[in-house]
Every structure is written in C-alpha cells, then in structure tokens.
Computed example of a mutant assay.
Amino acid sequence: MTIDGMQLTEMDDGAIRAFLTNQKMGVLGLPTDGTPYLLPMSFGYDDGSTLYFAFVGGPDSRKRTLIEATDRAGFLVYAAESPFNWESVLLSGTVEAVPESEWDDIDSVLATAWRPAVVEAAMETEAVAVYRFGVEEWSGYKHTGLPPGFDPATDA
C-alpha cells in the first residue's frame, strides 16, 4: 500500500497540542560527531510551546555533557495502539538549562511527567538538572484507518 492509499492525516496545531498534553514519554535526539544520541525521556508540557525534562545523574553523564554542548535538539513523541491506529509528532527547537531559582515556577508542569520508580528514587540522592525545550517547529501525523477487509467504504 502506498502512502496515498493510507488513511494518513496531518495533525494541525490543536491536535498536536492535545497529543502532547496526553503523552508523557518521548525520544530526545542530541547531536554528536557521529550518530545522534537518542534517549527516552519523560517530559512535562506547558500546553504552549515548551517541554521540560529533569535529568538525573552527575555533571559527567553523557546526556548532560551533550545537552550542555548544544542549543538545538529534536524530540519525537509517538503512540502506537495498533498497525492501523498511531500518532507521531516530531519537534525541533532549542534546549537550555532552567536555573534552579525557576524550578518552583514550573513545578506543576514537571509534576505531570511520568517517571519510573528507579528515577524517582534517584532524584532524592543524585544530582538533578532541569532543561527547557523551546519548540520552534513541529509536525504530526496520525493513521486511524481500519485493517483491510474491515472498512466497508473501501471494500465495496
């Protein structure tokens, strides 16, 4: 099946915002000299154009070293319910550290980020840094079709 035959829909800004509001995990892509460094990240979304990440680990961790060395990054958020029902949003933008003096101001946004228990425990004993991802561009697509043989409109 070609992409023209798929029930693929480009998401508008409202659909992208709604999708980001309902998702809590994505993949952060950081530039390197070779292959981009990709890591799963939980995030908080401010319902506008900013995502927030909390990094756990010392200042020598690879992700902190790479994020401090750049001001640009990519972020992919997706949900795949089935081969015929999925959504995907690709974001690009700037990334910068949030000063600890501002953490209380974004506490409610950070609280919406899902974190595995191991990360929650580490946050109590390890160094934590918070980063702001300022969205400059986004695009999203969703596929909400039915499997072949289940759509009477196309099977007739």
Score class of each variant (00 low, 15 high):
1 M>E: 12
1 M>V: 12
1 M>T: 10
2 T>R: 09
3 I>Y: 09
4 D>Y: 12
4 D>K: 11
5 G>D: 15
5 G>A: 11
7 Q>A: 14
9 T>Y: 07
12 D>R: 03
14 G>F: 04
14 G>T: 14
17 R>C: 14
19 F>C: 04
19 F>K: 02
20 L>Q: 02
21 T>P: 08
21 T>L: 13
22 N>L: 09
22 N>R: 12
23 Q>G: 03
25 M>H: 14
27 V>Q: 08
27 V>D: 11
27 V>T: 03
29 G>N: 03
30 L>E: 01
30 L>H: 09
37 Y>Q: 03
38 L>M: 11
39 L>T: 06
40 P>L: 12
41 M>Y: 01
42 S>P: 07
44 G>S: 08
45 Y>I: 00
45 Y>C: 08
47 D>E: 15
48 G>P: 03
48 G>E: 15
48 G>Y: 09
48 G>Q: 14
49 S>G: 15
50 T>F: 08
50 T>P: 05
53 F>K: 06
53 F>C: 02
53 F>A: 11
55 F>V: 10
55 F>A: 10
55 F>I: 13
55 F>H: 11
56 V>K: 07
57 G>N: 01
57 G>Y: 07
58 G>F: 08
58 G>V: 08
59 P>K: 00
60 D>E: 12
61 S>K: 01
61 S>V: 01
62 R>K: 04
62 R>N: 08
62 R>H: 09
63 K>A: 02
63 K>Y: 05
64 R>E: 12
65 T>Y: 02
66 L>R: 00
67 I>D: 02
67 I>A: 14
68 E>H: 14
68 E>I: 10
70 T>Q: 03
70 T>A: 02
71 D>W: 05
71 D>L: 05
72 R>E: 04
72 R>P: 06
73 A>K: 09
74 G>R: 10
76 L>Q: 09
76 L>M: 06
77 V>M: 05
77 V>G: 00
78 Y>M: 07
80 A>M: 07
81 E>V: 04
82 S>T: 14
85 N>Y: 05
88 S>P: 05
90 L>R: 12
91 L>W: 03
94 T>K: 15
94 T>Y: 13
94 T>S: 13
96 E>W: 04
96 E>I: 07
99 P>N: 06
99 P>H: 01
99 P>K: 01
101 S>T: 12
101 S>G: 00
102 E>Q: 14
102 E>M: 06
103 W>D: 13
103 W>N: 04
103 W>Q: 04
104 D>S: 13
104 D>F: 10
108 S>Y: 04
108 S>A: 15
110 L>F: 00
111 A>V: 02
111 A>E: 08
113 A>E: 15
113 A>S: 15
113 A>V: 07
114 W>E: 08
116 P>H: 01
117 A>S: 15
117 A>Q: 15
119 V>F: 10
119 V>S: 08
120 E>Q: 12
124 E>H: 15
125 T>S: 10
127 A>N: 11
127 A>H: 11
128 V>H: 12
129 A>L: 00
130 V>P: 07
131 Y>R: 02
135 V>Y: 15
135 V>R: 07
136 E>D: 13
136 E>T: 12
138 W>F: 04
142 K>V: 00
143 H>K: 12
145 G>Y: 00
146 L>H: 07
146 L>R: 11
147 P>Q: 02
148 P>V: 00
148 P>E: 05
151 D>N: 01
151 D>R: 03
152 P>D: 05
152 P>E: 01
153 A>P: 00
155 D>V: 11
155 D>F: 10
156 A>W: 00
